[in-house]
Amino acid sequence: MISVSGLVVHLGGKPVVDGLSFSLAPGEFVAMAGPNGAGKSTALKAVAGVTPITSGSVRFGEADADRISRSARARTLAWLPQLRSVAWNLRAEDVVALGRFIESPAPYDRLGTADRAAVDAALVKSDAAHLAGRSVQALSGGEQARVHLARLLVSPAPSLLLDEPCASLDISHQLSLMQTLSNEAASGRAVMVVLHDLELAARYCSRVIVMDGGRKVADGPPDASLSDGVLRRVFAVQRGPSGGLVRAG
């Protein structure tokens, strides 16, 4: 259970996240939506512990996130950033193996059988098993995204935070990614995903948190939080005659 309360994060002196509170329970699959600059990525980074918190609190169960060690945090929660760079031309399976860094900080070849099996399983789950043995810089953007997804899935952490995992994926892989994450939630993991595609969010997620200007403006089942009022006010869109979203105006 992750509980965020009154979270404020200042970047360059300005509040980017301004009093955000929400909770994320095991088994939940939650989407975080909002226009560009709403503070979604920063909120995720603050929860992941890679951006300092200005005020407010993040708690993992009973423990204050500030008080737990790096390794305890890495065992609690895994984070997939929006920008996923790989400095060297590593093999795909070695990138995935980094997901188990806290358990066994070794390249794939030197992992134990259990860790290696976990890496193989994660590659299968993210539809990237055929990419094993390939150099990461030789892969297409979508293939790299699947390798990074596998890196996240192989983590021992029960909570997953993903920042725009669907970017650069084709539609078929977007659907399969959402299905994979849905399965992870069904197996007891807490999954939170930043999404721009509201229809994808509504289709797969049990809850949608809508952010605007650093604050939470809606939080609930997709039907409730993506109401006509929120769509018009926050996203400047409305439901068109065919059911799809069109620009409001």
Binding site: K45, A48, G49, V50, R70, S71, R73, A74, R75, L77, A78, W79, P81, L83, R84, S85, V86, A87, W88, L90, V95, L98, G99, F101, I102, P105, P107, R151
Partner: peptide, 15 residues
């Protein structure tokens, strides 16, 4: 090796 994925991701991995 953890730093290959950048400082922020390395931190989140527990490095």
């Amino acid at each position: 090796r953890a730093l290959s994925l950048g400082e922020e991701t390395a931190t989140s991995l527990g490095a």
